[in-house]
Write a protein that binds this DNA or RNA. Structure first.
Length: 946
RNA sequence: GCCGAAGUGGCGGAAAGGUAGACGCGAUGGUCUCAAACACCAUUGGGGGUUGCCCCAUGUGGGUUCGAUUCCCACCUUCGGCACCA
């Protein structure tokens, strides 16, 4: 009997042997292609939980697999070591952020090594090391020199608790809270540094050269938010030009008012004295708004009329100008034309404030509705509707009574209905048609809602004729009161233009382009594109980050730190103020500096540090040659890594990580590479060719793991109990890698049992061997099973389907357990099967695979050439995988009726004969005629009877 | 509201348009044991039955097909992200 499987012994043993033999040193001498596999670098928060292992175990398996396939694999790791938690820990515990971070990194290195991953530790890079951040600063300077970094005085989101500004991506939720600590952010006016990521907006929308998950591409596309439309100049009555952006120039004729953002610069000038007080009050309220925690997501529209009017340039209509907080100063031009008939926000605003709503685009479905109140027409109306084939029903509104609710389909029917209605109306009464047409039909003829003037005329007649309508300010408001109408009152279709002067009748598919062209010809407006994407705000008012290498001189102004003076070092002895304020502001030695341009002694350093996403935008380059040229003097023409090595390894072939970075890190790093390309530093357009996002491992209760829920799974204790191989394989077995799922503390037992059984199959002799049997046949069957498994496992690992990969290996092992007791034990086919099993386990469970491989093939002292992890991946032989017999599935009308063992190369003729001969099948054919027989894929036959 | 993902046994989950529930967990019964644990063997979607059988079942309702968990249409639910972007 061999020793029992004891991971506590073999795992440390192999860690040591692998390290000592240099097995995982990065090599370029293998015959195959290079493969740069990158997994998102961890933040050293202190403890690794199982959530860190979840992305890393499968990534490591892929790296190992690729190596067995002959690739030169580069699989580096490092630490994203700047950031707020270190500073907060410093305040709380009186430890310097550097010490805190380094202690955590040391602890995590140990935990990561216990996983047995094949990381290239010789290429480790830590972003808070001055030898690292000197290059982060160098990149900042290059971006500055390229005009991609600029400083702007602007209102920014500021977290009072973290004491720093946040990028737009880092502010979340309706209450606009800080991503990190949950505190509601405030607006602050500060001088801040930005990167011009917006220069690359269009290029960032192009994913054609990279294989990234759809959800990431969609998230980035939505985030960049490109819209095409037009900029159009409206003019105030006093002659001020008000520029607006619209995606719907085809709706210009329906603009019945304008809305400016409360902070729009023209508000001051345009506001009339009578409205001044109300406007100022509203502006104040709006500016405070982000500071107030909003309790509800209901966004009731608010706004104030500023007293002034503008002229709609397409039809010379005089329209009022309002301010409202639903218009953002930061998007477009900060001013809009409001087209309430075809924009839901404008529609809600107009309804609330009684502004006219004039449809200028036809519905594409041509549906119309008409409500005719009981008594407005004679009783013969119902029969007339039926005779004309018009759909109607009686509806009853308790306070208002009954009405004929007529639904009309198409222009033709709507027209004839208008005539029919008019003919049946009693004197002094009316009925409305809404949707495809917009009319009030009176006994003496219809009035149509074609303009704001028409709206006023209609209301005047209604008010005079029927007291009930006097509560309504506009025709649309009156119609809106009938609930049954609501779904046809507003739409945003691209339909045929109506009520639009010379453009009336322009079809929806060309309307936008036609109007834009005309606007340009008339000099009223021009084609324009807008993005939601804003420039990347990188300034952080914190100590623990990369100092921004800039100097402010009383004489020269903003002066960049010369390349040769880099790095600007963080003062290691800085005192972290308990308030969380930036220690650099109080560090006299850091702060005061001589101007590098004019020598003025009163210059000051920039005290802000960079967003840590700057560090992670280029870490995959740092790994190429970590701490490159440390201590040397740098210049603008240097290369930030070993070019020869970079040319070999770059770009990243596969990037694995979480999808939560979709609009931050993954967008920034693409921008960064494109900027480097334009500087001539790299020659490719995208940093990572392929990306795969894993899911989230949940707590045993199915919830996200968090300290507050008390459901965090710590890997250390599980490794102690079961070994790293069991933890690794269980994490891969739970389910599809990209789906995540709950950690089941009982489920892991199965993974451990599986490895125990592998151990037993490989090392233990038969327990109750069977006597006799056909050896050749048994070998053929075993080879069939082995090669089918190789095929399946190879396909699965290529597709990152580790759960089904492992279940295939379990099946093979289950088969071997039974086969061990037969004559096949000890045959060449048996040995081949054991080797294949071990080789296929090597990527997922590297320690047990190494141990078993060495027990079978080891020759004394371990050398890296002998390792299971450099053996070639088993070859799949399709001939051997083929089975001799199949189970022919026989269906009658698609229902399973019999299964018949048959030769694998059975012909359709033979299959028919077999199937029809089956008594189980014949039962279902009695009294029936065979209509058709389908023979599919050599494994199924379906008899169709009727 | 918009975008994305997903609904299959008691649970995690399998199924190139072709035997629904692979593999594993749990459960039940058995072997071993003084006993327990481990291990091993058997059973394990629901219902019926004449027990070498049948019916029902993949969120709901339709459709395409000889055949649908898979494709199409509509809807419901859950999770994740974005959210007044003109």
């Amino acid at each position: 009997m061999a020793d029992r499987y004891n991971p506590q012994v073999i795992e440390p043993k192999w860690h040591q042997a692998w390290d000592a033999s240099g097995l995982y040193a990065t090599r370029r001498d293998r015959p195959g292609e290079k493969f740069y596999l990158l997994t998102m670098l961890p933040y050293p928060s202190g403890d690794l939980h199982i959530g860190h292992w979840y992305p890393m175990s499968p990534s490591d398996a892929v790296a190992r697999y690729k190596r067995m396939r002959g690739y030169n694999v580069f699989y580096p790791i490092g630490f994203d070591a700047f950031g707020l938690p270190a500073e907060n820990a410093a305040i709380k515990r009186g430890i310097h952020p550097y010490q805190w971070t380094m202690a955590n990194i040391e602890r995590m290195r140990g935990q990561l090594r216990r996983m047995g991953a094949m990381w290239a530790w010789d290429r480790e890079a830590v972003s808070c090391d001055p030898r690292y951040y000197v290059w982060t600063q160098w990149f900042f300077r290059k971006l500055y020199d390229a005009g991609l970094a600029y400083r702007k005085y602007s209102p920014v989101d500021f977290c009072p608790k973290c004491n720093t500004t946040l990028a737009r991506e880092q502010v979340q939720g309706d209450d606009r809270h800080c991503e990190r600590c949950g505190t509601t952010v405030v607006k602050k006016e500060l001088e801040q540094w930005y990167f011009r990521i917006t220069n690359y907006a269009d290029e960032l929308l192009d994913f054609s050269t990279i294989d990234w998950p759809e959800r990431i591409r969609t998230a980035q596309t939505n985030w960049i938010g490109r819209s095409e439309g037009a900029e159009v100049t409206f003019t105030s009555e006093a002659g001020d030009e008000i520029l607006i952006f619209t995606t719907r120039p085809d709706t210009l004729w329906g603009a019945t008012f304008m809305v400016l953002a409360p902070e729009h610069p023209l508000v001051e000038k345009l506001t009339t004295p009578e409205q001044r007080a109300a406007v100022t009050e509203y502006q104040l309220q709006a500016s405070r708004q982000t500071e107030i925690e909003r309790s509800s997501t209901e966004k009731e529209k608010t706004g104030v009329f500023i007293g002034a009017y503008a002229v709609n340039p397409v039809n010379d209509e005089r329209i009022p100008i309002w301010i409202a907080d639903y218009v953002m100063m930061t998007y477009g031009t900060g001013a809009i034309m409001a087209v309430p008939a075809h924009d839901d926000r404008d529609f809600a605003f107009a309804l609330k404030f009684g502004l006219p709503i004039i449809p200028v685009i036809e519905r594409t479905d041509e549906i119309a509705k008409s409500a005719v109140w009981d008594g407005s027409v004679g009783e013969e109306f119902a029969a007339a509707l039926d005779a004309a084939g018009m759909a109607w029903e009686w509806l009853d509104i308790p306070e208002r009574g009954k009405f004929y609710a007529v639904t009309l389909d198409g222009a033709e029917q709507t027209r004839s209905y208008a005539a029919l209605l008019q003919a049946h109306l009693r004197p002094g009464h009316w009925g409305d048609i809404v949707g495809h047409a917009w009319q009030i039909v009176f006994a003496d003829g219809p009035m149509t809602l074609t303009s704001a003037d028409a709206d006023r005329a209609i209301m005047a007649r209604c008010h005079a004729g029927y007291e009930y309508t006097q509560q309504f300010r506009t025709t649309m408001e009156m119609w809106y009161a009938t609930e049954w109408y609501r779904d046809v009152l507003y739409h945003s279709d691209y339909g045929t233009m109506i009520n639009s002067g010379q453009f009336t009748g322009t079809p929806g598919d060309t309307a936008k382009a036609d109007v834009t062209q005309w606007l340009e010809a008339e000099g009223i407006g021009k084609f324009a594109i807008n993005y939601k994407l804003r420039d990347w705000l990188i300034s952080r008012q914190r100590y623990w980050g990369t100092p921004i290498p800039m100097i402010y001189c009383p004489d020269c102004g903003v002066v960049p730190v010369p390349y040769e003076d880099l790095p600007v070092l963080l003062p290691p002895d800085a005192e972290i103020p308990p308030t969380g304020e930036n220690a650099l502001k109080f560090d006299e030695a850091f702060l005061h500096v001589k101007c590098p341009q004019c020598g003025n002694e009163d210059a000051q350093r920039e005290t802000d540090t960079m967003d840590t996403f700057m560090c992670s935008s280029w870490y995959h380059y740092a790994y190429i040659s970590p701490y490159w040229r440390a201590g040397e003097t740098l210049g603008p023409d240097d290369m930030p890594w070993d070019v020869e090595a970079g040319d070999y390894w770059l770009p990243v072939d596969l990037y694995t990580g979480g999808p939560e970075h979709a609009t931050m890190h993954l967008l920034y790093t693409r921008f960064f590479t494109k900027a480097l390309r334009d500087m001539g530093i790299v020659s490719f357009d995208e940093p990572m060719l392929r990306q795969f996002n894993q899911g989230i491992i949940l707590g045993p209760d199915g919830n996200r793991m968090s300290k507050s829920k008390g459901n965090v799974v710590a890997p250390d204790e599980w490794v102690e109990r079961y070994g790293a191989d069991t933890v690794r394989s269980y994490l891969m077995f739970i389910g599809p890698w990209d789906m995540g799922g709950p950690w089941n503390p009982q489920g892991i037992e199965g993974s451990r049992r599986f490895l125990e059984r592998v151990w037993a199959v490989v090392l233990d002799p038969p327990q109750n061997p069977e006597e006799g049997g056909d050896v050749a046949e048994a070998e053929r069957e075993l080879r069939h099973v082995t090669h089918r498994t190789i095929h399946k496992v190879t396909e699965d690992i290529e597709a990152f389907k580790f759960n089904t990969l492992l279940s295939a290996l379990m099946e093979l092992n289950n088969y071997l357990m039974k086969a061990r007791e037969t004559v096949v034990y000890g045959t060449p086919a048996w040995d081949e099967a054991l080797d294949a099993l071990i080789l296929m386990l090597a990527p997922e469970t590297p320690h047990i695979a190494e141990e078993l491989w060495q027990q079978r093939h080891g020759q004394g002292d371990f050398t890296p050439e002998q390792s299971v992890h450099v053996q070639p991946w088993p070859e799949y032989d399709p001939e051997l995988a083929k089975a001799d017999t199949i189970t022919l599935v026989v269906q009658v009308n698609g229902k399973l009726r019999d299964k018949i063992e048959a030769s694998a190369d059975i012909t359709e003729e033979e299959a028919r004969a077999l199937a029809l001969a089956s008594p189980l099948v014949q039962k279902w054919l009695e009294d029936k005629t065979i209509r058709k027989i389908i023979f599919a894929g050599g494994k199924l036959i379906n008899i169709v009877v009727g």
